[in-house]
Simulated assay, not measured.
Amino acid sequence: MTPPEAQLRLRDQPDKRARLDPARPLTIGREGNNRLCMPEQTGLSPHHAVVRHSSSHQSWVVCDWQSSDGTFLRGERLQRCRPLADGDEIQLGLSGPVLIFELTAAAPAVQPAARAAAAPAAQLAAAAAVSSLDIAGQQIPLDQIRSATVQSLPRHPHIFSWWLLVCLGGLLLLPFPVLFWPLELAALAGWILLGSRKEHTLTVVLRDGRAQRRSFANRLTALSHRNGIRKAIGQSLEV
C-alpha cells in the first residue's frame, strides 16, 4: 500500500514547508545534521523529534527524540510514537515552534513542472534535504544504518590487581603504622575511584558490515544517542 503524501508546515511561517518521504525519516532539531534543521528556533533541542512512516501503524507517526522540553501532540506529551492525522499540530518543546501535519494530494504524472514548483522552499527545503547523522565526525545516511548499541566497559580493567599489589607491598610497612595506614587508605580510595569509572561506547553497525564507534563518559548520554538513532531508523528501544 502506497503511503499518502504528506508535508509539515511551520504554523508561524506558512510558506515554510517540508515534504515527507516514506523512505527517509525526517529528523528535527537545531543541529545541522537533522533533515529539518532550525538553528534559530528557541525552545528546540539539538535533536528534538522524528516524523516517519510506520509500516506497523500504516500511517505517519511522530516520535520524541530525547528532547529536553518534550514533544506534544493534541496537548499531550509524547511517551512513544503516535500516529498523525491531517491537521495535527506538533508542538516542539514548551516554547518551541509548532509544525502542522498535512496530507497532500498526489500531483498528476503529466505535470512534472508543476510538481517541481511545489517542492519545499527556502531554508526549510535545504534542511529537509539532509538525510544523515553525524557519528564520530562522519556523516552516515539513515538508510545505511542497521543497528545501534551501547556497551559499557571498565576504563581501568586491571585496577583490582594493582590495588592488591599495593596492599601486599604495604605489609612491609606494617611495623610503621604512621606509613602503613595512610598507604592502605590511599590504595583503597584509588581502587574505589578508578574502579567505578567506565567507558560507554556507542556502536553503529552499517548495512555493509562496517561499524562506527563513539565513546562517552556518561552512560545516559550514550543511551540518549542510541535511542535517538533507533527512533530515526524506526527500531524499538531498550533500557
Rank of each mutant, 00 (worst) to 15 (best):
M1F: 08
P4R: 03
Q7H: 04
L8F: 09
R9H: 10
P14N: 07
K16P: 09
K16N: 04
K16Y: 13
A18Q: 02
D21N: 10
P22G: 04
A23I: 12
R30S: 15
E31Q: 07
E31D: 12
N33V: 08
N33M: 03
R35F: 03
L36Q: 06
L36D: 02
M38A: 11
P39F: 10
P39A: 00
Q41G: 08
T42C: 04
H48Y: 13
H48A: 06
H48V: 04
V51L: 01
H53N: 10
S54L: 05
S55V: 08
S56C: 14
Q58E: 14
S67I: 04
F72I: 02
F72G: 00
R74M: 11
L78N: 09
Q79M: 03
R80G: 08
C81I: 09
A85M: 14
A85T: 15
A85K: 09
I90N: 00
Q91C: 02
L92S: 01
L92K: 00
G96I: 09
G96H: 08
F101D: 00
T104P: 14
T104I: 12
T104W: 15
A106D: 05
Q111R: 10
A113Y: 01
A113C: 12
A116N: 05
A116G: 13
A116E: 06
A122L: 06
A127E: 03
A127S: 05
V130R: 02
S131M: 03
S131W: 11
S132E: 09
A136I: 01
A136H: 01
Q139L: 04
S147V: 11
T149E: 06
V150C: 06
V150E: 01
Q151I: 04
S152D: 14
S152L: 01
L153E: 05
L153M: 10
R155D: 04
P157D: 01
F160A: 15
L164E: 08
L173P: 13
L173K: 14
L174K: 14
L174Q: 10
P175L: 08
P175M: 15
P175A: 04
F176Q: 09
P177M: 01
V178E: 10
L179R: 04
F180E: 06
W181N: 03
L183C: 15
A187S: 15
L188F: 04
A189S: 12
W191M: 13
I192K: 08
L194E: 09
G195C: 13
R197I: 13
K198Q: 07
K198P: 13
E199C: 11
H200C: 05
L202S: 01
D208K: 05
R210D: 15
N218A: 08
A222R: 00
H225L: 10
G228M: 02
G228A: 13
I229M: 09
I229V: 05
A232E: 00
I233N: 08
Q235S: 07
S236A: 15
V239N: 05
